[in-house]
C-alpha cells in the first residue's frame, strides 16, 4: 500500500493546463479534501469538469470516487461527522461556502444512484415528484414535463400506456431509466451517475449507455463506473482515482491508449483493481 502511495505524485499544475482549449469548466474542484470523522478519504483533488461532456471517474473499490461524486451535490451532508476542505465551484459559485442553498444546488445537480430507487408510487408520480415539491400543481404542465422527461430518458414508448401503474412493476433497467427521467424532470444542468448500470443486464446497460450518449448534448455528466469498457465507450474525459488521490485525468482516448502514469496503465490493463 505504502509503495503505491508513494508513486502518486502531486502535479496540480499539469492538470490545470490539461483542459482543452475553448471549453469552459462547469465544475472546478481545487485541493479538495474529504474526511469521514478523522478518516481522510480524499486528498487534494483538483479537477475540472467541462460543460456538456461526459466525465468518467474510474478506480478500484474504496478509492473515493463515489465520495467525490456525492461531494458535487453535497449529498454527503446527510452523513454525520463528515468534513471538507478546499473548494468546489459550479458556474463560478463556491458550493461549500456558508449560506449556499443546498436544496437549490441539488435541483441544479441531479443524481442517479447505483441501485435504482423509484418511490413506491406510480410511474407518473415518480417523474412528477420533483415538480410537485417545487409547488407545480398545474396538471397540463405536469403532463407535459412527465412526457418530455420520459422521452429524454428513452422510456416513454415503453410506459406511455401504464403511467398510473406502480413504478415497482417495471423491470430493473426500466426502473433505472425512470430514475433518470425523474432526475431530468427538475431540469438540472449537471447529472451525477453513481455506477448507474452496475446492477443491470447487458442489454439494459447498453440502453443506459446510449442514453448517456444522447444526454450529453444538453447536460454535463459525471459518471462513476467500475467497468473500464463502459468508461471508454461513454466518456469524453476520464479521471483515475486511487487511494483517495486523483492519479491522472485526461481525454478518454488518450488515457486509454497512452496513459502517462504507470499506475493508470496497470489499472486499465487489469493488472490490479
Amino acid at each position: 500500500m505504502a509503495a503505491i502511495d508513494m508513486k502518486v505524485k502531486e502535479r496540480p499544475e499539469r492538470r490545470l493546463t490539461e483542459m482543452q482549449e475553448g471549453k469552459t469548466p462547469k465544475i472546478e474542484v481545487r485541493d479538495f479534501d474529504f474526511y469521514y470523522s478523522q478518516n481522510q478519504v480524499l486528498h487534494k483533488v483538483t479537477l475540472d469538469v467541462p460543460e456538456k461532456e461526459v466525465t468518467a471517474l474510474i478506480g478500484p473499490s474504496g478509492c473515493g470516487k463515489s465520495t467525490f461524486l456525492r461531494s458535487l451535490n453535497r449529498m454527503n451532508d446527510t452523513i454525520a461527522g463528515t468534513r471538507v476542505e478546499g473548494t468546489v465551484t459550479i458556474d463560478g459559485v463556491e458550493i461549500y461556502q456558508p449560506g449556499v442553498d443546498v436544496v437549490a444546488l441539488r435541483r441544479r445537480v441531479g443524481m442517479v444512484f447505483q441501485k435504482s430507487n423509484p418511490f413506491p408510487k406510480s410511474v407518473y408520480e415518480n417523474v412528477a415528484y420533483g415538480l410537485r415539491i417545487g409547488g407545480i400543481r398545474d396538471r397540463s404542465v405536469l403532463d407535459e414535463v412527465v412526457e418530455r422527461s420520459l422521452q429524454r430518458a428513452a422510456l416513454w414508448e415503453e410506459v406511455r400506456d401504464r403511467l398510473n401503474t406502480s413504478a415497482l412493476s417495471l423491470s430493473g433497467g426500466q426502473q433505472q431509466r425512470l430514475c433518470i427521467a425523474r432526475a431530468l424532470a427538475v431540469d438540472p444542468e449537471i447529472l451525477l451517475m453513481d455506477e448507474p448500470a452496475s446492477a443491470l443486464d447487458p442489454i439494459a446497460t447498453q440502453k443506459i449507455e446510449e442514453l448517456i450518449y444522447q444526454l450529453k448534448d444538453n447536460y454535463t455528466i459525471v459518471i462513476v463506473t467500475h467497468n473500464m469498457q463502459q468508461a471508454a465507450r461513454v466518456s469524453d474525459r476520464t479521471a483515475f482515482f486511487m487511494l483517495g488521490k486523483l492519479v491522472e485525468v485526461g481525454d478518454t482516448n488518450t488515457m486509454f491508449m497512452t496513459p502517462k502514469e504507470k499506475l493508470t496503465e496497470d489499472y486499465i490493463t487489469g493488472r490490479f483493481g
Binding site: 449529498m75 446527510t78 436544496v103 435541483r107 444512484f113 441501485k115 430507487n117 418511490f119 415528484y129 415539491i133
Partner: peptide
C-alpha cells in the same frame, strides 16, 4: 423505509420535511 428512498428525494432538491411528508410518512 429504505435510506435510498430518502436519498432519492433529497437528491431531487426536496427539503428534509418534504422528504418526510411525501416519501417517508406515506411509505
Amino acid at each position: 423505509v429504505p435510506p435510498d428512498q430518502r436519498e432519492a428525494s433529497l437528491a431531487l432538491g426536496a427539503t428534509q420535511w418534504e422528504t418526510i411528508r411525501r416519501v417517508v410518512l406515506p411509505a
